[in-house]
Design a protein around this nucleic acid. Structure first.
Length: 577
RNA sequence: GCCAGUUUAGCUCAGCUGGUAGAGCAUCUGAUUUGUAAUCAGAGGGUCGUUGGUUCAAGUCCGACAACUGGCACCA
């Protein structure tokens, strides 16, 4: 009998728990679901799991599977369940909170291990594979996902239906690791980190900074065409600004701040919004000025927890492609739709055809401001904008910011991890706190609706995802160095320089590789650095004013006239507006 | 911040049970002038993350701190 992979994974989680119980009898069980490529189970035991335990545990799991144990389901009432799990504090905590008088609870027993579990499970462990799972790692995880609770030990296991699937998965993981943004950053000479001097902050090298600048140039061009205005606000401002915005109370501890000689506390900006509010607040705004789009490529600094830093994906200093949109209530939905389309279109240009969207709704009342009516309206507007445009999304219950609901979009890195990138957020807080207003048709003052919006989110993070998705093989318009000209010997050095000059005159960034090395050597090295086009010039090319091209990922050669090449390149590096 | 692991030359890594460091690539010098993924030869380069301790002796054992990696929490 064959079962869905989720059932197999979940049943294997019980086998893991049974194996751990056998090897470490003091263990207390929390829970263990099936996940994307396998499953995990959370344990609490005096023993600290380490890699050395993995083979022992896997062996025990295989033994248990071999024993053809049955997964037996029983239904018990609450009191009976409390008796069964009286030595299992985590199960008891769950039972004590469980409030469903009269309802029966489902309990599964496999060998000596009994768990509170809805199932479904396989009938017998003979339905489970013995050689298509592998313990990946052990990691800490808080009970109930709350940092105030005890940290448990979570064992992650990769699990598939067949050995081939597992092996294929492991191989893919290996290949994905080769596309890690940190590795590509080194291979392509894009950036580096200085853990001693600036943990979590990027030192951009020429190549990386060229990509970074191109991303911003592209966004700027797109935004200008969409009617955005671009502003720039100070990096360091008095603490009282963030007190006014309400962020200090909530996030003050994550700010970089310091005292100045006049005894004031200044703070490096962790976000651009308050500055944007002050710009909007200048002069008198009319309803005729709305919607008003104020964009800012603001570099922001946040003291992120040390354990959360990760290459380009999570840094302490990054540039947001932020914008604040001021509009009327009637314009709100149209503006949200415009942003969503903007995001979709731009992501498509980077090759991200499907992006996952989440609508984050109001957090618990103690963590939010504004009345329920306003939240209803705000959430309704965002939801309607999504629905009316056939955009697929999930709802992230309670995940909104304290000041309003938002739509976030997520991209995955090469290892499948999900990162928040673009965002549309409705803010019911800042217009109030900065007392923003516009004069309406009726001659009265009105409060504008304000939307935060980021397309890529953080330039750093987006570049990280982009590098991983392309394996560093960027499209020509984004490539930091689309062409390198390589003479066969020093006899053609002058001609190589001539080719470079012609390309540069056409706006193509390039250089000649005049090193005293064999062509083979240079081809290899340039290929490893992912140079998209290598233009080789020898006596033949010099004689007839041509170049021989080799494109990344191919060993085909193509000889074309220099003038044609220059014209082609000038076209190929144009931004896809 | 929490849990686990890791930290040796510019990079990738070796150094078993403690006996004061090694490879490949890169760099530099010389030779070579090269036709599509590594030309040959020589040379230089490390207070083994930092800091305490154990020991006659520590890259190796123990502690603290830091950073990094993988998770968890956080993410305005």
């Amino acid at each position: 009998m064959s079962y869905p992979i989720e059932t197999v994974r979940h049943s294997l989680a019980h086998v893991l728990a049974a194996a751990v119980q056998k090897l470490f009898p003091d263990v207390k069980f929390a829970g263990g679901p099936a996940i994307e490529n396998g499953f995990y189970y959370d344990f609490d035991t005096e023993h600290r799991f380490s890699e050395e335990d993995f083979p022992k545990i896997e062996k025990e799991m295989r033994e248990l599977i071999k024993s053809n144990g049955r997964f037996e389901q029983r239904f018990v009432d609450l009191d009976e369940a409390k008796g069964l799990f009286k030595f299992q504090p985590y199960k008891m905590e769950w039972l004590n909170e469980y409030d469903a008088a009269g309802e029966k609870l489902s309990v599964y027993t496999f060998r000596d291990f009994t768990d509170l579990c809805r199932g479904p499970h396989v009938e017998s462990s003979k339905d489970l594979p013995r050689d298509s799972f592998k313990i990946r790692t052990v990691a800490g995880a808080y009970w109930k996902g709350d940092a105030k609770n005890k940290m448990l030990q979570r064992i992650y296991v990769d699990a598939f239906l067949t050995r081939e699937d597992l092996e294929q998965f492991l191989k893919m993981q290996e290949e994905a690791a080769a596309r890690d943004n940190r590795k590509l950053g080194k291979d392509m000479d894009l950036f580096h980190f200085e853990p001693e001097y600036a943990p979590g902050a990027v030192f951009w090298h020429n190549n990386g900074y060229r990509i970074y600048r191109k991303l911003i140039e592209y966004l700027r061009a797109r935004q200008e065409r969409a009617g955005y205005l671009e502003i720039s606000t100070p990096s360091i401002m008095d603490r009282c600004l963030w007190e006014r915005s309400g962020h200090w109370a909530k996030y003050g501890a994550h700010n970089y701040s310091g005292k100045t000689q006049d005894g004031k506390t200044f703070c490096v900006k962790p976000m651009s919004c308050p500055g944007g509010m002050l710009v909007f607040g200048q002069g008198i705004k009319s309803y005729k000025d709305l919607p008003l789009y104020l964009a800012e490529f603001g570099k922001v600094c946040r003291y992120e927890a040390a354990g959360g830093l990760s290459g380009l994906m999570r840094v302490r200093e990054f540039t947001q492609d932020d914008a604040h949109i001021f509009c009327t209530e009637e314009q709100l939905e149209t503006e949200v739709v415009k942003i969503l389309r903007f995001i979709k279109d731009i992501y498509g240009k980077f090759g991200f055809d499907k992006i996952s969207m989440k609508l984050a709704t109001r957090p618990n009342s103690e963590f939010r401001i504004g009345s329920d009516e306003v939240w209803d309206k705000a959430e309704g507007a965002l939801k309607h904008a999504l629905d009316a445009n056939g955009i697929e999304y999930e709802i992230a219950e309670g995940d909104a910011a304290f000041y309003g609901p938002k739509i976030d979009n997520y991209l995955r890195d090469s290892m499948g991890r999900v990162w928040q990138c673009g965002t549309v957020q409705l803010d019911m807080n800042l217009p109030e706190r900065f007392d923003l207003s516009y004069v309406g048709e009726d001659g009265e003052k009105h409060r504008p609706i304000m939307l935060h919006r980021a397309l890529l989110g953080s330039i750093e993070r987006f570049m990280g995802v982009l590098l991983e998705s392309t394996g560093g093989n960027l499209p020509l318009w984004l490539s930091p160095e689309p062409v390198v000209v390589t003479p066969i010997s020093e006899k053609q050095a002058d001609y190589a320089n001539e080719v470079v000059s012609a390309l540069r005159a056409a706006g193509v960034y390039c250089r000649a590789d005049l090193r005293d090395e064999k062509v083979n050597y240079k081809i290899r090295e340039l290929s490893l650095a992912k140079t998209p086009i290598i233009a080789v010039v020898g006596d033949k090319e010099m004689a007839d004013k041509s170049v021989t091209l080799r494109h990344f990922g191919s060993d085909k050669q193509e000889t074309i006239a220099l003038a044609d090449f220059v014209a082609q390149m000038a076209e190929a590096i144009k931004m896809p507006l």
